[in-house]
Amino acid sequence: MAQRTTLKVNGGTKAVEVEAGTPLLYALHDEIGLNAPHFGCGLGQCGACTVHIDGKPVRSCITPTSAAAGKEITTLAGLGTAGKPHPVQKAYVDEQVPQCGYCVSGWIMTAAAFLKETKNPSDEQIREALAGLKCRCGTHLAIIRAIKRAAKDMAQGSVA
């Protein structure tokens, strides 16, 4: 049975009519109309559906909508915008990371949460944090460069 659930998304409130077990991905993407997160594998194994719930990265394709009710949900669009980007988003553009761009939610949302917890991470820590994500364009080298750049920017406080 579809039921009305109120979600707190990107600082606003949205009501959706979905079944309790409907993956959060579909509530955000199909019901609310957010372009990202994306459906990648539907199994929580690629990361293209990653969002933050209360600041922690989760795979929205395997998270029931009911589990996110009342919590703060953040998607790429809520993390930052072209006018006011998160340091990871800015670094992604500066390092020219995205090719097809479809997987970006996974990497940026995961990295943003990781860098909040870990200041000045080592290469090994970055690799470990990102190990469960997939990018088929093979942008991994640029991703690592961007995350190091973002970490530096955040340490220097040069970007919001």
């Binding site: 957010l34 997160p37 790429l76 915008t81 072209a82 988003q89 995205p98 761009g101």
Partner: peptide, 9 residues
């Protein structure tokens, strides 16, 4: 599309 990619639009 770089900015659109990173901002999810």
């Amino acid at each position: 599309s770089a900015w659109k990619h990173v901002a999810g639009s």
